[in-house]
Design a binder for these strands. Structure first.
Lengths: 149, 149
DNA sequence: TTGAAAAGGATGTAGTTACATTTAATGTAT
DNA sequence: ATACATTAAATGTAACTACATCCTTTTCAA
């Protein structure tokens, strides 16, 4: 079923504007999947993304600014997401040695273990719902990159 | 610049999982554009989407359920978005004749006029940032449809 | 017909996001 | 050194989202 049937809109002014709507709709569809994937683990999507960035840097710390810079969804408030992760013991904050304004954020062992579990979930989800071939995925990546210029 | 440079992540486990990240990132990028497009008109993105659905039905009304069904972002609360639009005089609520539980929502003249203005903005934005050919857009639509199955 | 279940919306409320402001540390020009 | 601007992060607050619950109307079976 294509986007036109999904949202019951027959006409679009162009394929491009249809693609814009399709992008928003597909993202929302995907987000719902992710929310229900993370919920049993007590994580929100932004929390998960911060954890993944931290793991990418591990064992080096990340400053809050670095996290903001790399967050997929720039709109959320990094400090408060880190608060939540810290409450759960998934990350640790330390004052940065070189610049005492900055805060070094580290992922904890517990955080790493949680991500390992989530990797399994994500992998099995992706395996189940991977409807695109590598080639198609590659094409999609190129088109999305092109949209952003 | 591709997604890998944008979010400074060198490795992805597959082209598909890279595409998933790319989709989220591109959607966020797009959303920021839309927010700043709508803001001068005092509209949020969900409000704009509801207005567009109402125009699609015009001069027929839409019930709240129909709006929920067609909203791109299912997560937001239709009743309250309609509250906001009503406060601004962009829509009108009437009790549905056939079923007094249901509410018929109509877009007002003022709402239609606002959308006309916004059409111009959207068109000029799309013209400026339309980096995809019709063919590429069509390909993108197919790939997005395929992701959702 | 009447009483339970279901449907359409509205509303309460906890948690989040958006954005401005604040606090503290650093950089920089005099 | 001193003052002023800038930067990093935290925080206050209003608005919004997510989700459960409620209220009213309709449906439908007994």
């Amino acid at each position: 079923m294509g986007i036109a049937e999904d949202i019951k809109q027959k006409k679009f002014s162009s394929e491009f504007s249809k693609a814009i709507v399709n992008l928003i709709y597909t993202n929302s569809w995907l987000n719902q999947k992710h929310v229900s994937l993370f919920k049993p683990f007590g994580l929100t999507t932004p929390q998960f993304n911060i954890l993944r960035i931290l793991r990418g840097q591990h064992p080096e710390p990340s400053t809050v600014n670095l996290l903001i810079d790399r967050m997929l969804d720039k709109s959320s408030n990094a400090s408060r997401i880190i608060d939540k992760l810290e409450e759960k013991g998934l990350v640790v904050r330390k004052q940065c040695k070189d610049d005492r304004r900055a805060v070094d954020v580290y992922i904890s062992e517990k955080g790493l273990a949680l991500l390992t579990e989530l990797d399994r979930e994500m992998d099995s989800w992706e395996k189940d719902s991977k409807n695109l071939t590598e080639e198609e995925s590659n094409m999609l990546n190129q088109l999305l990159d092109k949209i952003r210029n």
